[in-house]
Design a binder for these strands. Structure first.
Lengths: 257, 257
DNA sequence: TTTTGTCTTCTGTCATAACAGTATCAAAAT
DNA sequence: ATTTTGATACTGTTATGACAGAAGACAAAA
């Protein structure tokens, strides 16, 4: 356990915000923090055995990634997405992953294409198993993990580290919001991901792009509608003001040197 | 000036990290902090009249956006991009802005299309004026501002707030790195942006996408080559280890609830 | 001349504690 | 019964100061 600088015990000096970041993120992703539940920096700091400062730094990162929202003197809670939030996430996912698909179709080697084919086949099989056993929670976990890993592997093999990181950050948000409505969604075709991998494995970047776009868009509207119900049932008592373009829209870019 | 809580003077309680963020960012974007120059949190805190904590929060944001790099017990400095960094930025820019172009061609109204046509014509004119007066620094500033504003306006009219914010964050990085090599770059066609706006104003999203892609890619290789020289002349004495995929690649996404 | 060790001074990190908003709820007033 | 007021118990914020690690200066030893 981390210690106090006033006395002599201070073991973990290395990366305490990272430790907090990982802990909180996992709590969110595993559902121990439900959508909309409040989190206290003080309690978290006590639980993690550190002060509020590294915890606040971790929370700031999570806020920037969109998982958490915080109001200055009021509180911090797991962000409940609105409908435009979800739509935006679909749009960004489409932009980033279609780009990854293009690059994959251009640059991936034979071994990588084969690996993805196998992953996709296994994932499609898992989907079928899950449809046959709708109440098995462990299967839901398995399918989701495999799904994420397939998409991340594609972006990894795109060869662009920054693109890969952006996709990961975006997909974390996306899948976290989506997790609550597995089961409510209409089923996907039996070769859903195998077809995708086949398409992006062709040497035609435009085809790969198009295939990934339709893949991402697949029953997007149904998902948005299901999500809206969940979002509505979580109370929006103190939703943060998040309307209009709060950004600077380029006016800050004053290169007047 | 912000004060001390121990005595009675504490005027600006509102958003001190934001204030620091804006100040630092502007210093970088206007070139008062050169690429690779070290910045001290203590000095900055003293200059801004606040403690190190809000300054550190601002710096953390800038690190996450890629403008700054920081090594735990060593120092903080303006990040010097490597060649893969630049390539990645091009890739991400292409992905995001082509998506914005698609959405614009689908959703923008007549008034917005006209506004962009006018902005583009003016920008093209500015480029010609700058080519005629290569030594006018004020012109460089003007052209860059207009350029950024055109691109930001397109993404604004895409209707997706999150997409717009991502593009802004990415473009800030991009143009900041590019700023040092205006003049070294080959000139751009005389109707460069008017042609772009015309293409994305068509009702064909695919055409808009393609036009934006070629626009972003325009003399990309030349830019990367020029940038490499500048990056090399800045010493890379203590470059942070930034190799390999340091991300978690989806393995953190354990939905085991 | 080169190397090595130590000392100084810089860096970022973080726990503590005082601070200032905000919400909640009960008591008082209308 | 409804509204207003007040106290209290939270919330995030941030200045202060102590701390550990890294780098540079410089003298002593090889």
């Amino acid at each position: 356990m981390p210690g106090n600088p006033r006395n002599g015990t201070r073991p973990t000096l290395h990366g305490m915000p990272d430790q907090a970041y990982r802990a909180i993120r996992e709590q969110i992703l595993t559902g121990r923090f439900a959508l909309g539940s409040a989190i206290s920096r003080r309690r978290l700091a006590a639980e993690l055995g550190m002060s509020m400062i590294p915890v606040s730094e971790a929370i700031q990162r999570l806020v920037q990634e969109g998982l958490i929202e915080s109001k200055p003197q009021v509180g911090t809670r797991i962000r409940i997405p609105t409908e435009p939030d979800i739509r935006d996430r679909f749009i960004i996912r489409e932009a980033l992953e279609s780009q990854a698909a293009r690059l994959f179709s251009e640059r991936a080697g034979m071994a990588e294409r084969r690996e993805l084919r196998e992953m996709a086949a296994e994932l499609d099989g898992l989907y079928q198993v899950r449809y046959a056993n709708p109440d098995n929670a462990s299967l839901v976990f398995k399918v989701n993990t495999a799904h994420v890993q397939l998409h991340m592997r594609i972006s990894e093999y795109s060869g662009s580290l920054a693109l890969c990181q952006l996709i990961e950050s975006n997909d974390v948000l996306f899948y976290n919001w989506m997790f609550d409505l597995v089961g409510e969604q209409p089923p996907v075709p039996s070769h859903f991901h195998s077809d995708l991998v086949a398409a992006i494995s062709s040497t035609d970047p435009l085809g790969a792009d198009a295939a990934m776009r339709t893949h991402v868009r697949y029953n997007m509207e149904a998902t948005i509608q299901s999500m809206r119900k969940i979002g509505a049932q979580a109370e929006s008592s103190w939703r943060l003001g998040r309307g209009k373009l709060a950004s600077t829209n380029g006016q800050v870019l004053i290169h007047s040197r």
